[in-house]
Amino acid sequence: MKYKKNKKAQVQMTENVIILFIFFILLVFSIVFYTRLQTAKIGDVSTEKAEMDAIEIAQKVLSMPELQCSVQGAATPDCYDFVSVNATASAMEKNPDLVNIYSNIFKFSTITIQKIFPEKDEEVFVIYDKKNEELQDIMPTYSPIILCEYSQSNFGYGQTRICSFGVLKVAVYS
């Protein structure tokens, strides 16, 4: 009788040990899963922040009075004065310290403008470029823009506006 009771107790003991073992395995799995999830979430939050920065910078570039073009004093949406773009790009190239003037606004990013149509311009105008070696590039943001040039009218008075299709690319480093 005593032997039978002992055997039953032994079986229950083994069962308890197995259940505790499975329980701890599950606990370890859940901790690993939760940690990975949190790490991924932290990564997502930083990517999201960088993406928000990219949108914010793109919006700021699109409304820069230094580059915007206007008709009779009124700014045209998504329109850039090509002469100003060209002048800004060459000034930035000649004097890289100019980047510091805009670094509070554009942070670590590269902003370029390229003419696409009627003639695709191989030259890419870099209007801001501040890289950080430690930071990686994220997916760039593209915006279609109008690039306008003004030329003297054939009749000798007034100006003719010729506009091309261009692309503004903003790459933020995060």
């Binding site: 998504d78 009627p118 823009i145 299709f165």
Partner: peptide
């Protein structure tokens, strides 16, 4: 992602606005 959503919402309007004001590449005419 937020970028994709915001970009895509604004993109058709920006694209059409840009396209329709751009030069069509016709000879001797702007």
């Amino acid at each position: 992602s937020i970028t994709k959503t915001v970009q895509v919402k604004e993109l058709p309007k920006n694209f059409l606005n840009t396209l329709l004001y751009s030069e069509a590449g016709c000879e001797g005419s702007s």
